[in-house]
Simulated scan of single mutants.
Amino acid sequence: MPELIAWVLLVAIAAYACAGGTDYGAGFWDLMAGGAERGKRPRRLIDHAMAPVWEVNNVWLIFVLVVMWTGFPTVFQAVFSAMWLPLALAAVGLVLRGAGFALRKPSRRLAQRRVYGAMFAISSLLTPFFLGAVLGGIASGRVAVGTTASADAWANETSVLTGLLAIAATAFLGAVFLCSDAGRFGAHDLADYFRLRALLAFAAVVVLALIALPVTHDDARYVWDGLTEGAGLLLVVLAGVCGVATLLLLLRRSHGWSRYASVASVALVVGAWGFAQRPYLLPTTLTVTQAAGADHTLRWLVIVTVVAIVLVGPALVLLYRLDTMGELEELTDAETMAAGTPGDNL
């Protein structure tokens, strides 16, 4: 039972890395779009593409937290005790990011739009960095039961590189998805614009991964061994193949398939990390079995997970499907004005 819950947790983390990561990547390119006039069209595309799904993507993060504190309360306590500062900064970033995105569009004054846009874009950069830094601290064995909070837990070489890799990976995902959105809306010049940025982001991922190789070897040896043999190595190779396939599909302007390939590459990397840590949740001090909650709690957690899959799963699949097909279009100002306001006909 504990192993099953651990795999559910890993799948939820992979889902958030892909779904939420795409949104963070869009925010990164919003930050890099330039001044108000130069970045007007890319930012308009980002707003239009994110609007239908950005709130839904955070459901995966909530699910991760629920499974973690219910199924593995010891791990939850250890991680949040040792890493409270980066996690708090990530949480602040999530709040400011959502507020900035929601308030930027209805703002009429340019100064207000700039402030809210800066909140959204900078938070989209900092939040994945801090979340990645937390994962790096865990992978390098700096978190154990009883570990007190310290800068070394998350400001070490492995954590910093993992945070930068998280930013680069989200930028890659965001650019790939925006290529497809631009093509769907007929903005073929923006498709070329984001295609170039997807290629640059992938190059950044490769460079950072190469830099991380010797660091991981020395600083996170247990995870390194897991990534260089067995199932972990296989998933890393498959992730690389999917990444290269994404580039080839982008060059051929096959934007629909490039989305699937990019998501697969990121999900496989998360899976490789999970295989590399087996059987530990906190390498090399706390195994999955040792960290698991009470048996009856785990049984109820499995039941709740099944219910959630049955009730929420189809709705999420339908939402993502309709979004990729371009069926979830926002109402224009003209349409909302034409609809009138409640009480107009009284």
Rank of each mutant, 00 (worst) to 15 (best):
M1K: 13
E3G: 02
W7G: 01
A15M: 08
T22N: 00
Y24G: 07
G25A: 09
A26V: 05
G27N: 00
M32H: 09
G34M: 04
L45P: 07
I46P: 07
A49R: 05
M50D: 00
M50E: 01
P52E: 01
V53P: 04
W54Y: 06
W54N: 03
E55R: 06
V56D: 10
T74M: 13
V75R: 02
F76W: 14
F80W: 14
A88R: 08
A91Q: 10
L94M: 11
L94S: 13
V95N: 03
L96D: 10
G100S: 12
F101T: 03
A102F: 13
L103W: 10
L103P: 09
L103H: 02
P106K: 11
P106Q: 11
L110C: 15
A111T: 09
A118P: 09
M119K: 04
A133Q: 13
A139L: 06
V143S: 06
A149R: 06
A151E: 10
D152V: 04
A153Q: 04
N156I: 06
E157P: 05
V160Q: 03
G163E: 03
I167M: 10
A168F: 07
T170K: 03
L173P: 00
A175V: 07
V176T: 08
S180R: 10
D181L: 03
F185W: 15
F185N: 12
L190K: 01
Y193T: 04
F194I: 00
L196W: 15
R197V: 08
V205R: 02
L208F: 08
L210A: 09
R221L: 11
Y222Q: 15
Y222K: 15
Y222G: 14
V223R: 08
W224S: 07
G230Y: 11
G230N: 07
G232F: 09
V237L: 13
G240P: 01
C242G: 02
V244C: 00
L247F: 00
L250I: 02
R253N: 14
G256R: 04
W257P: 00
V263W: 02
S265K: 05
G271F: 08
A276M: 08
Q277Y: 11
T287I: 11
A291Q: 03
G293I: 08
T297I: 12
L298V: 04
R299T: 07
V302H: 13
V302D: 10
V306G: 06
L311M: 15
L316E: 13
V317L: 12
L319F: 11
R321G: 14
T324L: 12
T324E: 09
E327F: 10
E329Q: 14
E329Y: 12
L331H: 11
T336L: 05
A339R: 07
